[in-house]
Design a protein around this nucleic acid. Structure first.
Lengths: 157, 157
DNA sequence: TATTGTTATACTCTATAACTATA
DNA sequence: TATAGTTATAGAGTATAACAATA
């Protein structure tokens, strides 16, 4: 329990920051995402990657021969935005695109050896990055956090 | 539970989505934030508010007479970006700015009656919005989630 | 007619630097 | 010189619509 006291009326003049939009998940989520995202970008920069390219490369390594459309769906991104991400990865020699038989509209994606290698380095960097920012959270805490986040579903789902 | 098995080597060809960047908090955070943020924006639109203006208005209602710089700090935003947010709120007649005695550089912020009213409506909309998206999470789950998120601290802190 | 990928574009959010007016 | 606020601008990230090739 320890529960409720679900006041709707704000108690003015609290003075303490941090509890600015109490009860709402959104602001806490925004703040945490902002912290992790900006730092992740700085960490990936030396590898020539950004958040979007790293995420895409990681998915492509995990699921060889997936289509661009599938990649967009997994990343919750628009197909049109995936195009430029994949192009960047291809230009860097990290992934290749293949035609498949039976449907000449689709491209499938596969990581190159260089792609696998760089993805491994990036994974290590990302783990170190999160270890640094998430010192307050144990491994179990992080697993709980991810589990809670993954239970958030789209409006029409 | 369903616990650990903290493999570092990816098991290829899993086929299931959702588990794309395993173990990392960042991607789960980004996905959740993206879901909530975009929907929150749509919800606030009818009130003429956006995420940034709503957050600022809410803080100003909570802490009357705070300075713009303090507002920026609470919102983890740049002072330069706070300016346009406050201007929008002022133009809409939701907040006013006052000089203080002793330091003519600073402005303090206060919500108008209209500001208080609109903030109340926005709070209700935001609660409904989160109730809709967070059906998978009980009140205790949300409190746990917020507590976990708030334990994430900046790199140099 | 619907779908995959593509192009171009616009909009939001955030970051940076230079400026003013006060202190 | 330092600080509070301001201006202008650039850069990400994301969204939308129109299009070509194929189904």
């Amino acid at each position: 329990m320890t529960g409720g006291s679900e006041h709707s009326t704000p108690d003015r003049g609290d003075g303490e920051a941090k509890i600015y939009l109490r009860g709402l998940v959104g602001p806490a989520l925004k703040r945490a995402h902002h912290l992790l995202h900006s730092d992740a970008g700085r960490c990936l920069e030396p590898l020539g990657l950004r958040g979007a390219t790293y995420a895409a490369l990681s998915v492509i390594c995990d699921r060889p021969d997936l289509r661009q459309g599938e990649l967009a769906e997994v990343l919750s991104a628009e197909r049109s935005n995936i195009v430029v991400t994949v192009e960047a990865l291809e230009r860097a020699g990290l992934v290749t695109r293949q035609r498949i038989e039976g449907d000449r509209r689709v491209w499938t994606l596969r990581a190159t050896e260089a792609g696998w290698t760089l993805c491994g380095e990036a994974n290590a960097l990302m783990r170190a990055h999160e270890d640094r920012l998430l010192t307050g959270l144990s491994g179990r805490d992080r697993a709980r956090l991810i589990a809670l986040l993954d239970r958030i579903v789209p409006p029409g789902g």
